[in-house]
Amino acid sequence: MKTVIYECPFIPAEWIAAHGLRPSRVQPPAAGAILSLGSEDGTCPYARACLAAFFHYPGDAIVYTTTCDQMRRGCEVTIAQTAKPVFVLHVPKTWEQPEASAFYREELLRLSRFLVSLGGHAPSNSKLSEVLLAFDGARRQLVELRSVATARQFSEFIARFNQAGDPGCMVDIRKVFDAAPPAALARKKIPVALFGSPLMSHHYFLFDSLEKLGGRIVLDGTTTGELGLPGLMDRQAIREDPLQCLVNAYFGTIPDAFRRPNDQLYTWFREKGLERGVRGILFRHYVWCDTWHSEAQRLKEWSSWPVVSLETGEETQLTGHTLARLQSLVEMLQ
């Protein structure tokens, strides 16, 4: 079975799977010096990491989206340097008008034609409904793990689920969890929300470092974490119009920072933050990531929770700078 790789949370895994192909959402490690990906000065480390991962990750085709300019332009580098088929899907930044979601739906249909060209089969409504139900069921199980797993485990499970692109992966995820259930959740530690740019695959040390200092991430507000999860679906709606259900679950609910306007991001964050008893925010963005960087000050003005912001690059382990920022957050909240 051919594998289609992508990074963006707005690519529905279900849609690819329903075509008989394997979807796999990549969470990249740092690009480092693996490849010459253009100038490091001015390019987002995460976008560079994705490009590098797309070259090395086993996959038969690549799907890019246009949600940020860095990725849109990085895509051209990929096209120039790979023999793999590349598809670019335009995710509208605007969302308030019905035309925007209709365009997204049209883009999914265009993606379908690309998937067919790779050897996939355009799904019937009943096939699509079946796949949607399977994914939705698995995602519900995944979400349930949040209350019993550690924050790090939960975020890593999300990444694992995305990468596997198969609802059956919940069996393995469950096994991993059962083999190493947390001795006790660190409930006494200070509840903190992580918010901002997506995490690279080696960035989970942040969770442990914060715990060592007396904090505990209770909300992973990154698109590699909870923020990037599509909404749960209504079973009746799945049966009536599965494609529209997909559009609603992805385009209609993921409140990413690039959306215009992006007030929904703050609504989502407030709801989740209150629900989890958040007391402070670790806001993290990559150098040259305008999309998230520009939210840092706005978040501080908006938030009644203290915010510490952290600008990061490609570092693969805890740096003195990051440690100092984590310490100052915890001290502020003690």
Binding site: T66, D263, R298
Partner: peptide, 22 residues
């Protein structure tokens, strides 16, 4: 917005967040 630079899109969003309807 859409296929535009991130700089402008973000700056305009900041402006919008400051109370300028767009």
């Amino acid at each position: 917005v859409g296929a535009t630079c991130d700089d402008f899109s973000c700056i305009a969003q900041r402006l919008n967040g400051l109370g300028f309807p767009i």
